[in-house]
Structure formats: structure tokens, C-alpha cells
């Protein structure tokens, strides 16, 4: 129905643009990771030294491990908050369902920076939380370790990603065929059994999608550690960012980025694979 000219006209501009400003830049990251810096100047001297440094210097493994740990904590907390919320909305909220759903969506539109900044003002040593604790006479001195800790990073990222985890879980729960639940109950299953044997397995693809998303985006975050993390909350993307700034070693930074990219894409593929397996059951 559409002519050849029409098809060419619509495909060509986005293809060229995406090729130039997306594919080529990603390829440049890969190219940089194979170059080197000698005497403060970047040279196009193809080698694998950056990758060797990553694999042999334990410092990178330590930061990567901490990053994974933070990302896993965020994912777990976001599921623990998001799943029951989605469950409540899908099965028990009744007439208020639509309103409550919109209330979960609103924060998604509110600036990442605004929300991060809010946590900074709450957790700081002259912050709102310390003021509150002293007001209740629970503490006398300001507590210093709320802010600038891995805990603060996990808290802030959990706050950001809980709505993202909620969404696919809620969508999955809404699609659980209601007659199945009645059948389960008619056949004598308790509501706990119905949850574990019927609802949870059917919502697994949504859970996996949300979890993958929260994990992957936490893994590559460098703003939360800068904002509320402090030195003990430094994550892998902060290493990249400092290599592109003061430390000036683009090739090494690029090699770490390729590492992040590989981990991210593998996780997305794994998530997709698992979702498909669950969907077929």
C-alpha cells in the first residue's frame, strides 16, 4: 500500500540520525577503550591494557562489588515496597484504584534532582530528620551517618525506582484472570496458597521486568552517590565520571563503560529470557 519512495523517505532520516549520533558515539566508546594515555595525551595506540588493568587491579572489583550490592539492595527494597502496593491496588483498592494509581505515577514526572535534593535536606546532620529526632528528645547530638553513606544512596534510589517497579507488576496483576482465583478458592486453596501458587507465578514476568529495570539503572547511576553517597558510597559510574574529569584517562573510563554496557545488556537479555520462560508456563 505504501510506495517505495514513501518507505525510503520515512526510514532514511531516522536511520542516518541514529547511525551518526547514537551508533557512532557508542562505537567511539569502544574504540577509546582500546587506546591509551601517554604523558597526559591520548594516543591512538591500539591495545588491551585498559581491560587488563580492570581485571588485575582489585580496586575496581571492590567498587563494582559495592555497586552490585547497592543495586541489588535497591531492587529488593523497591520490590518489597512496590509489589504489596501493586497487589493492594489490583485486588483490594476498589473504587479508589484509579486515583491511587495516578498518585503512584505523579512522582515519576517529578525531577530526579528535586527528589534527590529532598533526601539531602532530610538526612543531613542539620537536616529535617535530625531536627525531628532531637525535637522528640530521641537523640541529643545530630546523627552524622544518615547522609553520605551507602544507606543514603539505597534510600534515594529506592525512592526513585519504586514507582518503576510498581508499574509492570501492577500491569501483570491486572491481567491475572479473575476466574483462576475463584477456581483456586473453590478447589480449597487458602488465600496464602492462592498467592504463592497462582498470583505470584502469573505476575513473575512483570516482577522480573521491574527488577531488571531498577537494577540496571541503579547500577549505572553516578548522581545519587555524588548527591548523598559520600566517599563510602562511591559507585562504578563515579569512577568513570572522575576518569573523564580531573583524572583524565578517557581510555580507562571508556573500558569501564564498556564493562557497564556488557553487564547491562547481559542482564536485560537474561531478564527477557526469564520473562519468556515464565510467560510460557
Amino acid at each position: 500500500m505504501y510506495s517505495r519512495a514513501y518507505k525510503t523517505l520515512v526510514s532514511l532520516p531516522p536511520l542516518v540520525w541514529v547511525g551518526t549520533f547514537l551508533l557512532l558515539p557508542y562505537a567511539l566508546v569502544f574504540a577509546h577503550s582500546l587506546w591509551a594515555v601517554r604523558e597526559g595525551v591520548m594516543v591512538h595506540d591500539w591495545n588491551l591494557d585498559n581491560y587488563k588493568a580492570l581485571l588485575t587491579n582489585p580496586l575496581y572489583a571492590v567498587v563494582l562489588f559495592r555497586t552490585m550490592h547497592i543495586a541489588a539492595s535497591v531492587t529488593l527494597c523497591a520490590i518489597l515496597l512496590g509489589y504489596p502496593l501493586a497487589y493492594y491496588l489490583a485486588f483490594h483498592a476498589g473504587a479508589r484504584k484509579e486515583l491511587l494509581y495516578q498518585l503512584v505515577i505523579v512522582p515519576l514526572w517529578v525531577s530526579y534532582l528535586v527528589r534527590g535534593y529532598a533526601w539531602k535536606t532530610i538526612l543531613g546532620s542539620d537536616g529535617v530528620l535530625n531536627g525531628f529526632l532531637q525535637y522528640l528528645h530521641l537523640t541529643r547530638e545530630p546523627v552524622g551517618y544518615f547522609l553520605y553513606s551507602p544507606f543514603a544512596v539505597v534510600l534515594m534510589l529506592t525512592h526513585i525506582y519504586t514507582p518503576f517497579v510498581f508499574l509492570p507488576i501492577y500491569a501483570a496483576l491486572e491481567h491475572v484472570p479473575r476466574p483462576l482465583l475463584e477456581a483456586s478458592q473453590d478447589l480449597g486453596a487458602s488465600s496464602v496458597q492462592t498467592f504463592w501458587r497462582v498470583i505470584l507465578p502469573l505476575s513473575m514476568p512483570g516482577l522480573l521486568a521491574g527488577a531488571t529495570f531498577a537494577f540496571v539503572l541503579s547500577l549505572g547511576d553516578f548522581l545519587a552517590p555524588l548527591l548523598v553517597g559520600g566517599p563510602s558510597g562511591t559507585m562504578i559510574a563515579n569512577v568513570v565520571q572522575s576518569l573523564f574529569g580531573a583524572a583524565f584517562d578517557w581510555p580507562l573510563g571508556a573500558a569501564i563503560s564498556v564493562g557497564i554496557l556488557v553487564i547491562t545488556i547481559s542482564l536485560l537479555c537474561l531478564g527477557e529470557f526469564l520473562e519468556k520462560r515464565w510467560a510460557f508456563q
Binding site: 518507505k7 520515512v10 531516522p14 541514529v18 557508542y26 529495570f213
Partner: peptide, 28 residues
């Protein structure tokens, strides 16, 4: 509407900035 070689690759590529950490898109 159009079929072209690498269409499914293109679809994934366009969506990458949504899923990849912003730092990678930024520094690339």
C-alpha cells in the same frame, strides 16, 4: 510500514538511551 535490512536492530538501537545508564549516552 517499511521493511528494511536491520529493522529489528534499529528498533533496539533507538530504544537504548531509555534503558542504558545516562552516563554512557552522555560520554559517548
Amino acid at each position: 510500514r517499511a521493511g528494511f535490512p536491520g529493522k529489528s536492530l534499529f528498533r533496539r538501537l533507538v530504544l537504548l538511551p531509555l534503558i542504558l545508564p545516562g552516563i554512557i549516552t552522555g560520554l559517548s
